[in-house]
Nucleic acid binder design. Structure first.
Length: 121
DNA sequence: TGTTTGACTGGGA
DNA sequence: CTCCCAGCCAAAC
């Protein structure tokens, strides 16, 4: 591996959580995306779990709408990490996203894909 | 220092 | 539909 490549890898890793937060902050109200879609946009397609870790620590960073990130099936897999068991669902419903049985209704329609909606820098 | 555990996912049986 | 697996890698233990 070249020096440049390893430096790039290091930089990407160092800023990964912050990069995740930047993307999540761009999710419009009333829309949702998935851990994998964010990872994919950041060039780490197989690191969806790391996006989960980032969300786990997201309370430390202001203005990160963590409730708009769900899993690939539209399930609210992170609901237990919010203050109340129903907070994630309530936040979504408040902005017009219907939720039934811990799943986003019309997930396909509400889905916001950063790879399609954001410019690649 | 080694192992286990996940806010995950795509593929396969 | 269910179940399993490999790949992923930071934390926690």
């Amino acid at each position: 591996m070249t020096d440049q490549a390893s430096r790039k890898l290091y930089e990407r890793h160092k800023d990964f959580f912050e990069s995740v937060y930047m993307v999540v902050r761009e999710i419009p109200e009333g829309r949702v995306t998935s851990y994998g879609a964010i990872a994919s946009y950041l060039g780490a397609k197989r690191s969806a779990r790391m996006v989960g870790w980032a969300m786990n620590a997201s309370y430390k960073s202001p203005g990160v709408p963590a409730h708009r990130v769900v899993n690939r099936e539209g399930l609210l897999s992170g609901k237990h990490h919010f203050a109340d068991a129903d907070q994630m669902e309530n936040l979504l419903k408040r902005e017009g996203v219907e939720v039934r049985n811990d799943r986003v209704v019309d997930f396909k329609l509400k889905f916001w894909d950063p790879s399609r909606e954001l410019e690649v820098y």
